[in-house]
């Protein structure tokens, strides 16, 4: 156990180092972009550019720059944005992370429950109208772009029907911290949760249904039925339990990536200042310190999510346990 955790930590360090080095190199290798000239802005004089180059340390060798930047990012934590001087990276990411985590975690609960519900009901009613209807709905969920769905939800809940009993509870866009205002937190996030989850409920429901239908061909399902178990028990204990591995795998990947910032569109549409948005703005400005900060944060969550997936594997499938 201890060894496994150590191994994970090593893996995490390796991934974070690799990604940060890559980002760093891409930043300096981007053709035609002298970072000093870019930071100085258009029409800047040669002296200004030189001054900036000196100030930001762009005249030093790359490895030195890398080490200095990593030290300021993690050790002294006083690394600031290139673009917005005085804007410190670590506090910015720390402030944005709860927004993103709140959004993604809530949506994840919805899409796990919704995906299992859709998959199980569709598999149980295979080839009936219920099955077809659910699969059609799932396909709609998959094919609706999240920004479009988000805008439609906003249109409905913020303006068109905002004054009716249905949506009068919906607060203005933006994030309310969970600790200060739990009710507000919940209210502002309900609609974003559903919006983000719609896509994943569709995907997970369809994948799970396919896995379950396949599982029902297995001999052990026949054994379970021959034992005289109820259909619900056969489904939940035997078919679902053995079909969860792909589900969990997908979940680990999706969750890690979304917490890492891939929920950008949802964040933007609902005015949530999360990590996705932070990353996006940093990329637009080619703001290296901010990109590094958000990317490190993202890779941390991707690795953590995958480690959790491995733990869940062991819980649901004894064959993974090994010796």
């Amino acid at each position: 156990m201890f060894f496994a955790i150590l191994q994970r930590l090593g893996q995490m360090l390796f991934v974070m180092f690799g990604i940060s080095a890559l980002v760093f190199l891409i930043f300096f290798a981007t053709p035609g972009s002298d970072p000093a000239a870019r930071l100085a802005g258009r029409n800047a004089s040669q002296e200004t550019v030189e001054a900036i180059r000196k100030e930001f340390g762009f005249d030093r060798p790359l490895p030195v720059q890398y080490v200095v930047m990593m030290k300021r990012l993690f050790v002294t934590q006083d690394l600031t944005s290139f673009v917005n001087r005085g804007y410190r990276i670590v506090p910015a990411v720390v402030a944005a992370a709860p927004v993103t985590i709140s959004l993604v975690a809530g949506a994840a609960i919805l899409w796990i429950v919704g995906g299992i519900f859709v998959g199980v009901i569709a598999a149980l009613t295979r080839d009936t109208l219920i099955d077809r209807g659910l699969m059609a709905l799932a396909l709609i969920g998959v094919s609706m772009p999240v920004y479009w769905l988000g805008e439609v939800m906003n249109l409905i809940s913020q303006s068109r029907f905002h004054d009716t009993w249905m949506f009068s509870w919906v607060p203005a866009l933006g994030y309310k911290p969970l600790m200060e205002d739990p009710v507000g937190w919940f209210k502002t996030l309900v609609i974003p949760w559903f919006t983000l989850a719609a896509l994943y409920i569709g995907i997970y429901g369809r994948v799970l249904r396919a896995n379950l239908v396949e599982a029902y061909q297995e001999d052990f399902i026949r054994t379970a039925r021959a034992k005289g178990l109820s259909p619900a028990r056969v489904m939940v204990r035997h078919a679902l339990r053995t079909s969860l591995i792909p589900f969990v795998t997908m979940f680990g990947l999706d969750f890690g990536v979304l917490v890492g910032g891939a929920a950008l569109l949802t964040e933007v549409v609902f005015g949530l200042n999360g990590v996705g948005r932070l990353t996006y703005q940093a990329l637009l400005n080619l703001d290296l310190p901010m990109i590094l900060g958000t990317v490190m944060y993202a890779s941390f969550f991707v690795v953590v999510a995958n480690a959790l997936v491995d733990v869940v594997y062991v819980l649901i499938d004894p064959r993974v346990r090994g010796n």
Partner: peptide, 23 residues
Amino acid sequence: RAIRGREIGLISQDPMTALTPVY
């Protein structure tokens, strides 16, 4: 269901796949 498993027991063809792997 009350007959299956209680009054009629089935030993199915392939023991390698007849048991649920996770229990």
